[in-house]
Write a protein that binds this DNA or RNA. Structure first.
Lengths: 146, 146
DNA sequence: ACCCACTCGTTGGCCAAGCCAACGATCGCC
DNA sequence: GGCGATCGTTGGCTTGGCCAACGAGTGGGT
């Protein structure tokens, strides 16, 4: 009965495909960042700081979808490497203000490069037009899901 | 200098987009399966068994990209729930042959339903044609990456 | 017939990600 | 002044993906 008409369940559903594709993507990204001594959270924070400027840790968490507790740990590591500075907010003593250092920006540029390469190798089988379309659709999904 | 021309790094790279999109997808899938008392691995194994028939644990791992050790744990759980049977292979005493039970197939059908709903809600903003295109491109990426 | 390389199931462990609860300190508002 | 909310921080939990090692077993070569 199911000898010939078996549904291609494993590869047929989009959510499953997305899962598989992102397993690959995550592995590629992880390897790329890991080779630079960083992890996803590091990139997330550095990019958010570079793009939107200094912010409190809670604000950083909101920007990048990180939990406050994870922001603490990540800022600790980035600070230790000299990529960010953490100083108390004079206007609100609950807050720390986090700032990127020039060395942090330089590191971010390096991460950008290796991430670009990872992306290139991931999307190798797609034409430029297809990549654009893919990005457009993913953005639509993300926007819709707010 | 970066006041206006800041690259939309966070959202501009496809690998990052894929990561974000799959965070959503993974959450949806996880919640859907979790509501049925299962996890991704359970679905992976049940679907592989349903699609390709009985197999050894190592073979199951290869089919679904699971590590052998994870197959062990998952088969344990599925066996305890009566969804699969594990019996020694008479032809090769190193192997166990894993088989889906009718109850396991029924459970898989239920998982299929909730996964379909999760996928539906995930891809809500995309037209049918777009979904097809998305699936096609993801398949291309997966095939290319072996 | 023996060895050797390999496979298989299993145990145990590691790290990254994502999340949640609780705490003391601080702030804003009524 | 008191009260609810916010912030940084600590600690913990779960899932997912992976790797190393082990004993049992297999198959090929010689």
């Amino acid at each position: 009965m199911e000898t010939s008409g078996a549904p291609r369940r494993l590869r047929g559903t989009a959510s499953w495909l997305l899962g598989q594709a992102t397993t690959h993507a995550a592995r590629l990204v992880s390897e790329a960042l890991g080779a630079m001594g960083s992890r996803r959270y590091h990139y997330s924070l550095l990019a958010a700081l570079d793009e939107f400027g200094p912010a409190s840790q809670a604000e950083l968490g909101r920007r990048g979808g990180l939990d406050r507790s994870d922001v603490v740990a990540t800022v600790n590591e980035l600070e230790q490497k000299g990529f960010v500075e953490r100083r108390p907010d004079p206007g609100d003593r609950r807050r720390n203000i986090v700032t990127v250092t020039p060395s942090g920006v330089a590191h971010l540029r390096r991460l950008d490069r290796v991430l670009g390469q990872a992306q290139e190798s991931l999307l190798a089988p797609l034409s430029p037009a297809e990549r654009e379309e893919l990005v457009r659709m993913l953005n639509a999904v993300l926007e819709h899901h707010g």
